Amino acid sequence: MGKKIKVTFVVTNCKKTGPINQTLNIIRNLDKGVFEASLITMFPEEENNTMFDGYRKTNIKIYQAGMNKVKSILYGKVVVGNILKKIKPDIVQGVGIPPYRMTLGYKDCVHFVTLRNYCYEDYPDQYGKKIGPVLADMDMKLIRKQMSKGEPVVTCSNSLTDMYKKKQQLDIGFICNGVDVSKYSKRDLSKRAALRKALALPDDKIIFVYSGRLIDRKNQQEAIESVLHSARSSEIVLVLLGDGINRQSLVDNYRKHANVLIRGEVSNVIDYLHASDVYLSSSKSEGLPNGVLEAMAAGLPVLLSDIPQHMELFSVNMRIGRYYKLGDVGALASEIDSMLDDDLSSMSADSYKAVMNNFTAEIMSKKYQNLYKHFL
């Protein structure tokens, strides 16, 4: 057997986020006979908000730089570069643009990055409406420069690639996100009543659930208002899981409504998915939404806004659920009402099959592995 291909992943830290989860999925499914993976973390881990143990259990080598943000700006490239000199990787994959920048001081490798959002939509929400567009301009300048050198860049969905093509005139390939289907197993309806009791959820309602960040871009207020405007609102409950800058305002504004439950950050998302009937996302923008894929892997039908990234899922199978026109509360309320009369069991089966056949972590990782080989 020949020399293994060394792939080093560089992250800020292992905070529980979609990109960190997707990177772990890539590593878990690597062909160990061909690839040797390692990880560099730039910042210390956050207590009670880390996936570090998941990475450690893969038995890859992990290097912790232990920098803070100021130190990373001042000499992050030097610190990361010195670690890379010890590893001597063939490919370095930055998970996010800041870590990607830190890898560019080391020249003896292929530099690689996956774009997981459209920066001009995501950054204003993340960094503010003044700073966000400036940072997006900087990142686009960097991506154009690296692509002109022949360095590989992909997005995490076909629809996101189309967006960069139309809006930035960039020809970028894509590898769709994948879900760990062993973790998000298909729900067992015979156990749903017991789960609802344990989670203090009503047993006599149709439960719509969302899991993810509670921020403007995710647009939870539209989902809540649609539930409240539903002609059959007394028959349904909306459960929101996750944290974010909008959480407290949502709690304050809707605490009086018994059919809106904002549970915040939980460690047992899978239990909530198994206890629910429909996954609801009213998001304004996505890469390829992890929360939706995970819900589908749990066998939930979906009700989604008609953004391109959501419609990409429907292009695989139109029977996975329903969609509505983003921004139209009345249209979403109408679709909610209609779903109460749909054959949710049939939608559930189609939703599960769509993920299993197209969006698993194994499928995603194999595509990355083929790309790594291509660029060496």
Rank of each mutant, 00 (worst) to 15 (best):
M1G: 14
G2E: 14
T8V: 12
V10A: 04
V11S: 01
K16R: 03
P19S: 01
N21I: 10
Q22W: 04
Q22P: 01
N25H: 03
N29K: 08
D31M: 13
E36Q: 15
S38G: 07
M42P: 02
E47M: 06
M51I: 02
F52H: 06
K61G: 14
A65E: 07
G66D: 02
G66R: 14
S72A: 12
I73R: 11
L74E: 03
V78E: 15
I83P: 02
I83Y: 11
K85A: 13
K86T: 12
K88Q: 15
D90S: 04
D90G: 05
V95E: 08
R101E: 14
R101D: 14
K107W: 06
D108W: 03
C109W: 12
T114K: 00
T114L: 00
K129I: 03
K130R: 10
P133E: 13
D139H: 10
L142R: 08
K145Q: 12
K145Y: 14
Q146V: 13
K149P: 05
G150M: 05
V154T: 00
S157C: 05
S157R: 04
S157N: 09
S159K: 01
K165M: 05
K165G: 02
L170S: 13
V181W: 01
K183N: 03
A193V: 04
A193R: 11
L195W: 04
A198C: 10
L201D: 07
L201V: 09
P202M: 13
D203G: 12
D203L: 05
D204T: 09
G212S: 14
K218F: 01
S226E: 00
H229M: 13
L238M: 06
L238V: 13
Y254V: 15
Y254F: 15
H257F: 14
L261S: 02
E265C: 00
Y272E: 09
Y272W: 10
A275E: 06
S276D: 10
Y279D: 01
S282K: 06
S282C: 08
S285R: 09
S285E: 10
L288S: 08
P289S: 12
P289V: 07
V292K: 07
V292D: 10
E294H: 12
A295V: 02
V302Q: 01
M311T: 11
E312I: 04
V316W: 01
N317V: 07
M318K: 13
M318Y: 07
G321Q: 11
R322D: 08
L326Q: 06
D328I: 02
D328Y: 00
L332F: 00
A333S: 14
S334C: 08
L340N: 10
L340K: 15
D342P: 07
D342L: 11
D350N: 15
V355Q: 09
T360H: 06
T360G: 07
A361Y: 03
I363L: 03
K366Y: 04
Q369D: 00
Q369E: 08
L376E: 00
